[in-house]
Design a binder for these strands. Structure first.
Lengths: 232, 232
DNA sequence: CGAGTCAATTGATAATTATCAATTCACCGG
DNA sequence: CCGGTGAATTGATAATTATCAATTGACTCG
């Protein structure tokens, strides 16, 4: 891989604490690849050959059942994905596709599993990343089971705003039907939910969403301090 | 803690590979406690003081939102729970209550985090356990997003049967409303779903459910080999 | 600049799930 | 053995969400 890419990847929490020597071993065996939009990187059921690190672009993790499919997560740069499949060396439970042209670092799975065993700091970060991922899943599942669609949307907007340092103006990454699938609803219902939120401090102009009355949205969506709290 | 309890706990994958010396350190600082049914062990938002290991009994992990609540998992012996909260040292995202009188081992959180850092084998098992837990969550979320309630029930029965070595006769642990909540439906709809499955090879007598026609149930529920596959 | 394409919206209807209200059933204690 | 308590079931209705169909809107390509 190119030298210039390394610093931002090495800054990832996962790789930040490991021994330089081991990092060198991992990085020199990895390669960076550019994929066009709408390309399937891997499918459910395949064995993981690599750990993936999204350096630039946008990637969707999704699952399929018969003719339906559902977005499980949207991966933004810079972050790794499918660590759990790599650690357990079990088939993927999700498929991945690029939403935009994306640069991805591919780290050979066997090598990485080996280095994880040898480098305690790396293992600890892998453990932490899995714990954080697990907790994220708990949040998402709770969100699905305990809230209805418009509430989910409201809380999603509040959380996005929080992530962006409280910005009241949000620009959607990707299409609205993607967001709909992520939130577990149809595109039609997302449209209706967005207009329903107009009464609760949200205004929409295309892919640009503005929270005009934060308090009103909070009153409607009732975010939970723990469930919707931002993980460190 | 009593000596007699240790062997079965030490056999847990989590503690199986660690150094005997470290295990001794952990176990001797832990204590075993018996809780009556319907007792809250901890609530959402509390910081984890212990890792919990259920030795005997039955425990429910659940979440709350306003006046609704939902069962997230049912913990059967012998297994540990809330490892992710312990590792991240973040507040619980789920509450726990005993469903039956339960014996629980309490391992001090600070100590265990410390030992995890020192014992590579333990850390590796913790990492693996978190990865397996993450994957379980992915399955559950997919199940919720992609299937409707009667299908979820059908697949639940198939999976339970598989777990019990293909037994066609299943005895429910706990009440039906618990199962309903776990599957994300109301008790009323669980009743209706169970009677709907009568046409697809399932017969019910109280808490005793029999799969009378496995193929018919498979045809109806369409289990996915990966999603519903049993993790090693 | 206009046709074509696809996302997004809107309206109408259907399916699914939840809620409310009775019973019925099972089990326990007196 | 009887009455009481709460789970489970059943039926009727309401709320939520999905589906189907049509239209609008935005953008690209020739």
């Amino acid at each position: 891989m190119r030298e210039g890419e390394r610093p931002e990847i090495a800054k990832l929490p996962l790789f930040a604490e490991m021994k330089e020597e081991q990092r060198e071993r991992v990085f020199s065996a990895s390669h960076l690849q550019v994929f066009p939009p709408q390309l399937i990187l891997f499918d459910v059921g395949q064995k993981p050959d690599f750990l993936y690190v999204l350096v630039d672009g946008l990637i969707e993790l999704f699952t399929t059942n018969g003719d339906r499919d559902s977005t499980m997560a949207i991966v933004e740069p810079v972050s790794s994905f499918i660590l759990a499949a790599l650690v357990t060396n079990q088939p993927f439970l999700m498929s991945a596709r690029t939403l935009q042209s994306s640069r991805v670092m591919l780290i050979p799975a066997d090598l990485l599993r080996d280095v994880i065993k040898q480098d305690g700091a790396l293992m600890q970060e892998a453990m932490r990343e899995l714990a954080v991922g697990y907790r994220h899943m708990v949040r998402t599942l709770t969100d699905m089971k305990l809230r209805q669609s418009t509430e989910r949307l409201g809380n999603f907007l509040l959380l996005e705003s929080h992530k962006r340092n409280g910005a009241m103006n949000l620009q959607l990454r990707g299409e609205k039907k993607l967001l709909a699938s992520l939130l577990g609803m149809t595109p039609e219902n997302l449209s209706r939910a967005l207009s329903a939120l107009a009464k609760h401090g949200v205004s929409v102009a295309g892919g640009n969403i503005t929270i005009t009355d934060h308090d009103a949205l909070v009153t409607f969506a009732r975010p939970d301090p723990f469930l919707d709290g931002v993980e460190v």
